[in-house]
Simulated scan of single mutants.
Amino acid sequence: MNAIDRTPADLLRSALAADPARPLITFYDDATGERVELSVATFANWVAKTANLIQDELGAQPGDRLALLLPAHWQTAVWLLACSSTGVVADIGGDPAAADLVVSGPDTLEEARACTGERVALSLRPLGGRFPTPPQGFMDYAVEVPSQGDRFAPYAPVDPHAPALAFAGADALTGAQAVERAREDAETRGLTPVSRVLSALPYDTWDGLSAGLLAPLEAGASVVLCRHLDRLSPADFAKRRESERVTATAGDVPLTPSTE
C-alpha cells in the first residue's frame, strides 16, 4: 500500500492512516452461524491489545518463536499482525515443543502442552467469548486481552530483515519478504481498494495467508474469510457472494447455480 511498508504490521498502519472506518475482515463460521465484521480501526485495536499482551504479559522478545495452532479465523489474523508488531516469529502450525510460547485453539490444547513456555488458549467462540471452564495451564486470551492498552509501541524497533513468519517450522520469511510477496500477489490477482476477496483457504500455507489476509491488506482491499464453507449450499453461497459484494474467491467454494 505504501512504498515504506516493510513489515505486515506496517501494512496495517498504512491502512489505518488511509481509511480507518472501512471494512477489513468479515468472518463467517458456517458451523456456528457466526458473522463478524471488523473495520480497520477495530482490527488494529485488537492487534494493539494483543501486541501489548505478547510484550508485557507474556514477556516475549523479538526473535522468540510463537507456535500458532489456530485455523483461519479473524483472531488468528490478529495474532499474526501482533507478532509482526513485536518482532516475534509467528510459526503457523509450528512444533510447540520447539517454541518459546504457544497460542492454541480448543482442538489443539493437548498438542500445545508440549510447550514449556507461556501458553495462551482461544475458545474461538462467537464474538471472541471466553472458555466456559478455563483450560488448566493456559491463559484464556478472552479474559486477558480486554484490559490491555489500546496503543502499542515496541520496546525496540522491529527489524524488517529478521525472520517473521514460518509455516510448521519451514519456509521462514522476513517481514520485508512477506510484504514483497504480498505485493506481488496483489498485483497478480489484480486487487484494488474496491476488491472483496472471499477466501476459504486455511492459513497454514503462504497461498492461504496471502489470499486471506496479506495481499488484500497490501492492496487496501478487504477479506471475507469463511470457515466451514463446505456446509453452505450453492444457493446460499451465491447469496453470500452477492450480499458481500465479493469480487474474487480463493479455495474450494460451492458451485453457484447456473443462471442459464
Results as ranks from 00 to 15, higher is better:
residue 178 A to K: 09
residue 54 I to L: 14
residue 140 D to P: 01
residue 160 P to C: 02
residue 163 P to M: 05
residue 166 A to C: 13
residue 141 Y to A: 01
residue 142 A to E: 07
residue 101 L to H: 02
residue 116 T to C: 06
residue 244 E to V: 05
residue 54 I to C: 09
residue 164 A to F: 12
residue 162 A to N: 03
residue 259 T to C: 12
residue 105 G to T: 04
residue 196 R to A: 15
residue 181 R to M: 13
residue 244 E to K: 08
residue 180 E to S: 14
residue 41 A to R: 13
residue 4 I to G: 09
residue 70 L to G: 05
residue 37 E to L: 10
residue 225 L to G: 00
residue 111 E to Q: 12
residue 231 R to Y: 06
residue 22 R to G: 04
residue 210 S to D: 04
residue 66 L to E: 09
residue 110 E to F: 01
residue 247 T to V: 03
residue 157 P to R: 09
residue 189 R to G: 14
residue 222 S to D: 06
residue 136 Q to Y: 01
residue 47 V to N: 09
residue 109 L to D: 02
residue 44 A to S: 13
residue 160 P to N: 09
residue 161 H to K: 13
residue 52 N to M: 12
residue 74 W to I: 04
residue 212 G to L: 08
residue 173 L to I: 13
residue 58 L to C: 11
residue 2 N to A: 09
residue 39 S to I: 00
residue 46 W to I: 05
residue 237 F to D: 08
residue 260 E to Y: 14
residue 64 D to Q: 12
residue 62 P to W: 11
residue 36 V to D: 05
residue 221 A to Q: 08
residue 240 R to F: 00
residue 245 R to P: 03
residue 251 G to C: 07
residue 51 A to Y: 05
residue 154 P to S: 02
residue 230 D to H: 10
residue 209 L to K: 11
residue 126 P to E: 00
residue 138 F to P: 03
residue 132 P to A: 15
residue 228 H to F: 03
residue 127 L to S: 13
residue 32 T to D: 01
residue 134 P to N: 12
residue 67 A to D: 09
residue 225 L to K: 08
residue 209 L to S: 02
residue 124 L to G: 03
residue 9 A to C: 07
residue 184 E to W: 15
residue 29 D to L: 06
residue 28 Y to M: 07
residue 193 P to M: 11
residue 138 F to C: 04
residue 99 A to G: 08
residue 216 P to I: 00
residue 96 P to R: 09
residue 184 E to L: 15
residue 55 Q to C: 02
residue 142 A to I: 00
residue 179 V to E: 10
residue 140 D to Q: 05
residue 193 P to D: 15
residue 18 A to E: 00
residue 160 P to I: 07
residue 79 W to Q: 07
residue 27 F to S: 04
residue 199 S to E: 09
residue 90 A to T: 03
residue 197 V to W: 06
residue 187 E to M: 14
residue 90 A to L: 05
residue 106 P to L: 10
residue 200 A to V: 06
residue 64 D to S: 13
residue 191 L to F: 15
residue 60 A to T: 14
residue 109 L to F: 01
residue 10 D to L: 00
residue 160 P to M: 05
residue 211 A to K: 06
residue 183 R to P: 03
residue 50 T to G: 08
residue 139 M to C: 11
residue 18 A to L: 06
residue 73 H to Y: 07
